[in-house]
Write a protein that binds this DNA or RNA. Structure first.
Length: 824
RNA sequence: GCCCGGAUGGUGGAACUGGUAGACACAAGGGAUUUAAAAUCCCUCGGGGGCGACUCUGUGCGGGUUCGAGUCCCGCUCCGGGCACCA
């Protein structure tokens, strides 16, 4: 073995061996416990960043650890390879998204391999491969048949120059992020997944995910947003129509004095009287031009317009003017709100602005509100007033009574409303999975027959960056004969949201070579669910909710038998430097390549695991990296120095050990216990590493190393260090393991076992307190009785001085730990 | 506004069910080795007082429970995150 630790040599050597031996290839083995470990796959943006280094280092520790513990570990990696950056890069470089993407994948794969990550590379997949996305098309069509995929018209952010839909995040101050044109609201027909069908189950099952961080579950519950309330019908005066509202505050129904509809509400124009028409149309137009983000901002001025029509409050018979109001959202509830200005702040502001009547129906206890004097709405619980038969009741109790009453009278019903909206998956983009649908003038929407799948994304397209999807201009793609009637028809040119691909990739990893369907049920049943999923918190709602939905949908299509895809979830923190998230604009980016070239992958991994527990943000420190590198050198030297003495060592004979040797063994086995628990139960790699560092310090202090009777203990200690560090720093430990005379890689060795007997303390340090303050320490035999400990403690000079002249009231003894003497 | 987190030395962090606060590192200072440096090794390292053994004080702030509180309870402050014109 080399005297000097040279990371590049060691790492290259073992990476090659792992690659050639396919060391981490796995197959289903019913005899072994399976462990499916997954880290969120990366978007191939070009190069890996420190966030990836951290994410994948964390995963690799778990994978290698579980493997050494005897689990059959599935640990795959792939590429979330469709998406807009590829298309934008292609437009900019006059290249092709496929070329850009595959080049990035090739480079990033080499980077990941340089990190020594224990992936089964045979399972690698890229979502832009036809062999991947074709299955998604099949699943889409099956979802379409079941009504889980459907088309509807909705309002979206639209950039007129780019001729495409923009996500809310892509609209900056009402303008397109790319061309700065004003974004408007456009009504478009788009494909949706009916995630709302699973709203109840998605919500309910958050209670079945004890292995998820509570805050992620809370975010998902918020997002789903279940609320209990009523739907209430308000007849329109002079029309055989009614307006239905959703409310959670049916207790305020008697105070509803006007009606507010979303400007996009289908009845808006119908309800508009001829004299109001011009004003109403102008208002609707203005609202539609406002982007959603701005419109839903809290400080946005509440505005509205009177339609000229009235509806009737079903319980008071009050004539309520119908307004359109900019703050009412079409896609929440029914798009119509009964306005109770006295008990809702928005309605209050609206009523003041347009001089609408106020009627108090809930009085605070011991107070009487005067509508004329109110400066804000009263939204708390109170006593019902002006509410007919409900007067005098507590308003929270009246809620239920009024709901029953409405139900009985047939003007309303109890209902549940969700904030969650169906998932719009259409993207007017080229670089995505084509939605396998054909439009025929005669037959309408015609799904592409299964025998004609896949709809391959054509490669021969031109990228101009303007004028919408290039697919619409490619005749060979666009023009198609109708599968039903054979007449000329048009192909759908929208592609699927890239979140669709990441909603089931974990299933494909179970069987990436399966050719008769997307998922090999038998293999998926063996591997699923994912035992440990690791990724950033930024996906708390989007990806993690979509994947849960998709799994449930696939269950209902008969593909899988699991309810939930991810049993345990670890959300790692961000990588921070100089107090800010690493970013080019801040100039605080650490390049993984440079780091690895200088110190090696092991140091990069060690530091990112040691500096903070995984769920916390990691503060990057160049000096900290230096320290991790020093530690690896220290371990290297330790093994080098011990090598001459441990070569012929046999098994430890615990009966004939010196005090020092017994002491070292004690540290070894205590460390094994701590490191095992820290990794397995808590994922606290920083403390696990700290414990090994302490062990290394103890071995350094252990003397004499060259005594033959110490050889076995020294060997046990050194080998334990190597084994316990191997999940963190696999290359250097692999080299040291070999140097210690072992055949077969350290990744195939067994995790060291904790021997409680060796770890047992012969003596214990008991802390002595007087009135809760530390006044002394006594060393006692491990089996010392309380009486013996007390005797020693009371004999201690320092303790004695604190007891002098005082009356001992009592003494509390925590066995083997602490004695607190209470004096008065 | 509502809902989650969090606040511990110069820094990152440790203290797992209430029981020695500051493990392990980083930085800093001192020393050994060296012609010199790097590397390595050893020592000091929350604050105040004392030559010293020691002692007082200290985990964002104010109370409380307890023999004992970084940890539990009540009330605040600040920071981070999520949700929010959601009817």
């Amino acid at each position: 073995m080399e005297e000097k630790y040279i990371p590049a040599t060691v790492e290259g050597k073992w990476q090659k061996i792992w690659e050639e031996n396919k060391s981490f290839k796995v197959t289903e083995d019913p005899a072994k416990h399976k462990y499916y470990l997954l880290e969120m796959f990366p978007y191939p943006s070009g190069r890996i960043h420190m966030g990836h280094v951290r994410n994948y280092s964390i995963g690799d520790v778990v994978g290698r650890f579980k493997r050494m513990r005897g689990f059959n570990v599935l640990h795959p990696m792939g590429w979330d390879a469709f998406g807009m950056p590829a298309e934008n890069a292609a437009i900019q470089n006059k290249s092709h998204p496929a070329k850009w993407t595959y080049e990035n994948i090739a480079y990033m794969r080499s980077q990941l391999k340089k990190m020594g990550l224990s992936y089964d590379w045979d399972r690698e997949l890229a979502t832009c491969d036809v062999d991947y996305y074709k299955w998604e098309q099949k699943m889409f069509l099956e979802m379409y048949e079941k009504g889980l995929a459907y088309k509807k018209t909705s309002f979206v952010n639209w950039c007129p120059k780019c001729e495409t839909v923009l996500a809310n995040e892509q609209v900056e101050d009402g303008a397109c992020w790319r061309c700065d044109s004003d974004v408007n609201q456009k009504e478009l027909e788009q494909w949706f997944f009916r995630i709302t069908h699973y709203a109840e189950e998605l919500l309910e099952h958050t209670n079945r995910l004890p292995g998820w961080p509570e805050r992620v579950l809370v975010m998902q519950r918020n997002w789903i947003g279940k609320s209990f309330g009523c739907e209430i019908d308000f007849p329109v005066e002079g029309l055989m129509k009614r307006v239905t509202v959703f409310t959670t505050r049916q207790d305020t129904l008697y105070g509803a004095t006007f009606m507010s509809l979303a400007p996009e509400h289908p009845m808006a124009l119908e309800l508009t009287t001829p004299d109001r028409r011009a004003e109403v149309e102008a208002f609707i137009d203005t609202v539609k031009k406002t982007d959603k983000t701005r419109r839903t901002a809290e400080d946005f001025e509440k505005e509205g317009v009177f339609t000229g029509s009235y509806c009737i409050n079903p319980v008071t018979n009050r004539r309520m003017p119908i307004y359109l109001a900019n703050f009412v959202l079409l896609d929440y509830g029914t798009g119509a709100v009964m306005a109770v200005p006295t008990h809702d702040q928005r309605d209050f502001e609206f009523a003041r602005k347009y001089d609408l009547p106020l009627q108090v129906v809930i009085q605070p206890v011991g107070e009487t509100l005067d509508p004329a004097a109110m400066t804000c709405a009263y939204t708390e619980v109170g006593i019902m007033a002006n509410s007919g038969p409900f007067d005098g009741m507590r308003s929270d109790e009246a809620k239920e009574k009024i709901a029953e009453y409405l139900d009985k009278e047939g003007v309303g019903k109890k209902t549940v409303n969700f904030r969650l909206r169906d998932w719009g998956i259409s993207r007017q983009r080229y670089w995505g999975n084509p939605i396998p649908v054909i439009y025929c003038d005669a037959c309408g929407v015609v799904p592409v027959p299964e025998k004609d799948l896949p709809v391959v994304l054509p490669m021969d397209v031109a990228f101009t960056g303007e004028g919408g999807s290039p697919l619409a201009k490619l005749d060979s793609f666009f023009n198609v004969s109708c599968p039903q009637c054979g007449q000329m028809a048009r192909r759908e040119t929208d592609t699927m949201d890239t979140f669709v691909q990441s909603s089931w990739y974990f299933l494909r990893y179970c069987c990436p070579d399966f050719t008769s369907g997307p998922i090999d049920r038998a293999r998926a049943e063996y591997w699923m669910s994912v035992d440990q999923y690791i990724g950033g918190i930024e996906h708390a709602v989007l990806h993690l909710l979509y994947a849960r939905f998709f799994t449930k949908a696939l269950r209902d299509l008969g593909y899988v038998n699991v309810e939930e895809p991810f049993t345990n979830l670890l959300t790692q923190g961000m990588v921070i430097k100089d107090g800010a998230k690493m970013s080019k604009s801040k100039g605080n980016v650490v390049d993984p390549d440079a780091l690895i070239n200088r110190y090696g992958a092991d140091t990069a991994r060690l530091f990112s695991l040691f500096a903070a527990p995984p769920e916390k943000d990691l503060d990057w420190s160049d000096q900290g990296v230096e320290g991790s590198y020093r530690f690896l050198n220290r371990v290297w030297r330790l093994v080098c120095d011990a090598l001459p003495f441990v070569g012929t060592a046999g098994v430890v004979d615990s009966a004939s050990l010196s005090d020092a040797a017994r002491g070292l063994r004690r540290v070894v086995h205590k460390t094994i216990k701590k490191v095992t628990d820290d990794i397995d139960e808590r994922f606290h790699f920083n403390t696990a590493i700290a414990a090994v560092m302490e062990l290394v310090n103890a071995i350094y202090a252990f003397e004499p190393k060259n005594a033959p009777e110490n050889a076995a203990v020294l060997k046990e200690a050194v080998e334990s260090v190597v084994l316990m560090l191997s999940p963190f720093v696999p290359h250097v430990t692999e080299e040291l393991w070999e140097a210690l005379g072992h055949q077969g890689g350290v990744e195939d060795a067994s995790w060291p076992t904790y021997d409680p007997e060796a770890a047992v303390d012969e003596e214990l340090l008991v802390v002595v307190q007087v009135n809760g303050k530390l006044r002394g320490k006594v060393t006692v035999a491990a089996d010392a009785t309380e009486a013996q400990v007390k005797e020693l403690a009371f004999a201690d000079d320092r303790v004695k001085s604190w007891l002098e002249g005082k009356q001992v009231r009592k003494a509390i003894y925590v066995p083997g730990k602490l004695l607190n003497i209470v004096v008065g």
